[in-house]
């Protein structure tokens, strides 16, 4: 790590010149993005812009063909597997809500809860009182207290989204990657989710991918526009939405 790039060392997340292709199709073409510690960032962009692929790169699911991915200035994420990246403190909510369907809501949170991840530790695990308190807190924050004993499979779509956000909270990562949290939600649920995310952003860094412009407006944070695998514009929502290129590719569709 002889690199003395100041943006690298001060940033929580640093992506530079990332390229990825799938069977010749270039999903990411020189994507660069820097996130400061404690920052919340919204990512928008048309379908296929590479938003989910970017999250795959950060979480170790996909390896970049080219480019650097650093976390906390020192950890090279492109050389690590999913579990180690998760243990570094990066949590992720999938685009399609993914919870453990045959576990209860409470057990979903328990599994996500920050605790040793080794098989042996889990074999002899006893859930202590602090952990129980923490589960209570998460259930309260995600408004799932009354559903704690239900199987996750039986939750509504919106509740599953919240449960997944709750699992992220329980994991207590430094950085949360949230892929389309309000897709398929009612307007009321969307408002609640924006509230929830702002609450979370108070003590976590968050990257949110969303198509819903009212929601992004509600979040009121810096916005990055992706298009065809690279950054098209960056700044306040009003600033980027007045950018003619952005209007052309995205807003003016």
């Amino acid at each position: 790590m002889t690199n003395v790039n100041p943006t690298l060392t001060n940033s929580l997340l640093y992506l530079d010149g990332i390229c990825v292709s799938f069977d010749g199709y270039k999903a990411l073409r020189g994507l660069s993005l820097v996130l400061a510690p404690g920052e919340m960032r919204a990512i928008i962009g048309p379908n296929g812009a590479g938003k989910t692929t970017m999250m795959d790169i950060i979480t170790g699911k996909t390896k970049p063909d080219e480019g650097d991915v650093y976390f906390g200035g020192t950890h090279d994420l492109s050389t690590m597997d999913e579990a180690s990246i998760a243990e570094l403190g990066i949590g992720r909510k999938f685009q399609k809500p993914t919870v453990f369907e045959s576990h209860t809501v409470e057990d979903n949170i328990l599994l996500a809860l920050k605790a040793p991840r080794s098989p042996l530790a889990n074999l002899f695990n006893r859930t202590g009182p602090e952990q129980k308190t923490r589960i209570e807190e998460v259930l309260t924050t995600t408004r799932l207290k009354d559903h704690r004993h239900r199987l996750a499979a039986n939750l509504s779509h919106g509740q599953k989204q919240w449960l997944e956000i709750g699992m992220l909270l329980a994991q207590d990562p430094k950085l949360l990657l949230v892929d389309e949290p309000v897709a398929g939600m009612t307007d009321a649920e969307t408002v609640t989710t924006a509230e929830l995310l702002r609450e979370i952003a108070r003590d976590h860094s968050v990257v949110v991918v969303e198509h819903d412009m009212t929601f992004v407006r509600d979040l009121d944070v810096k916005v990055t526009v992706l298009h065809e695998g690279s950054v098209l514009a960056e700044g306040a929502l009003d600033h980027v939405s007045s950018d003619p290129r952005v209007i052309e590719v995205y807003l003016g569709r």
């Binding site: 579990a83 998760a86 999938f94 453990f100 328990l110 991840r117 889990n122 074999l123």
Partner: peptide, 24 residues
């Protein structure tokens, strides 16, 4: 045990389990 809950989690959503930090 919680180990068993992780097994069920792997059965239901293997990659989710990885992203939670478990070495599946």
């Amino acid at each position: 045990s919680k180990f068993g809950k992780v097994l069920i989690a792997i059965r239901d959503a293997e990659s989710r389990t990885r992203f939670l930090g478990y070495r599946v």
